[in-house]
C-alpha cells in the first residue's frame, strides 16, 4: 500500500502516457480484483446480451408470440421485483460508502439488508415461476389455452422465458452467497473488496433493467382484466 502511494505521488508529478504504460505503475489506478470483476462483467454482459438477442430474434422471426402477462399477478409481481432490486442496489451503495469510511460494522448491516432484498427477489420470482408452471408453461410447451388464444405462436416462449429469467435468478442467488461471504469476513475485507462485490450486485440489477421491459412489458395481456 505504501508502495502504491509512492507510485501515485510520482504519477501525480508527471502525468504522461509513456510513464503510465512503461510498467511498474497502476495505469487504471484500481486493484487487480476489481479489474478482474470488471472484465467478468464485460463478458457476462455479452452472455446476457446473447440470450436477449436470441429471444428477440425468435420473437421477431415468429408469426405470432404469446402476450400472456395480466396485470395481476405477473406485472404487479415483476414491478415489485424491480423495486426490490433497485432498493437492494441502493443499500449496496450505502454498504460500499460505509466500508470506504472505515465503518465495517455498518457496512455489514447494509450488506445484510442487500441480501434480504436479494432473497425477497428470489422468493417473489419463485412464486411467479410456480404460477406459470402451474398454468402449464414448460420449456417446450405452451399452456393449452395460450396456444388457442395466440394462434401460430412459437413454443419457444417457455425456453426463452425460463432461460433468461433462470440465468438471471442464478446470478441473484450467487450474488447473495457472495455478499454473505463478504459480510461474514468483513474484518479481512478491504473497502475495494466490498466495492468489487457491489459491482457484481449492481450488474445483476442492471441486467434486470433490460429483462423486465423486454420479457414482461412487451408481453402484457390487455384482453384480461
Amino acid at each position: 500500500m505504501a508502495e502504491a502511494n509512492v507510485v501515485m505521488m510520482r504519477e501525480a508529478k508527471a502525468p504522461s502516457l509513456a510513464d503510465e504504460w512503461s510498467g511498474g505503475s497502476f495505469p487504471y489506478r484500481i486493484g487487480h480484483r476489481k479489474l478482474g470483476m470488471w472484465l467478468f462483467i464485460m463478458s457476462d454482459t455479452l452472455t446476457f446480451a446473447a440470450l436477449l438477442i436470441a429471444y428477440s430474434y425468435v420473437r421477431f422471426s415468429s408469426e405470432n408470440w404469446p402476450k400472456p402477462f395480466p396485470f395481476f399477478p405477473s406485472i404487479i409481481f415483476s414491478s415489485v421485483m424491480t423495486l426490490v432490486l433497485l432498493s437492494s442496489s441502493l443499500t449496496m451503495v450505502f454498504a460500499v460508502a460505509a466500508a470506504k469510511a472505515g465503518r465495517k460494522k455498518k457496512a455489514r448491516y447494509w450488506i445484510l439488508g442487500t441480501m434480504f432484498f436479494g432473497t425477497a427477489f428470489i422468493v417473489l420470482h419463485g412464486m411467479e415461476w410456480s404460477h406459470l408452471i402451474h398454468e402449464g408453461l414448460y420449456l417446450n410447451a405452451l399452456p393449452a389455452d395460450w396456444a388457442e388464444k395466440f394462434g401460430g405462436s412459437s413454443i419457444l416462449f417457455g425456453s426463452t422465458f425460463f432461460g433468461i429469467t433462470g440465468l438471471h435468478m442464478f446470478h441473484v442467488f450467487t450474488g447473495v452467497l457472495y455478499l454473505g461471504f463478504v459480510a461474514l469476513r468483513i474484518r479481512k475485507m478491504t473497502p475495494e473488496d466490498v466495492e468489487t462485490s457491489g459491482l457484481y450486485w449492481h450488474f445483476v440489477d442492471l441486467v434486470w433493467m433490460f429483462v423486465f421491459p423486454l420479457i414482461y412489458l412487451m408481453s402484457i395481456d390487455f384482453t384480461g382484466h
Binding site: 449496496m92 457491489g198 440489477d205 442492471l206 433493467m209
Partner: peptide
C-alpha cells in the same frame, strides 16, 4: 445511470 453512479 447505474454504471456511472452506482458502479462508480
Amino acid at each position: 445511470l447505474i454504471v456511472a453512479y452506482f458502479m462508480h
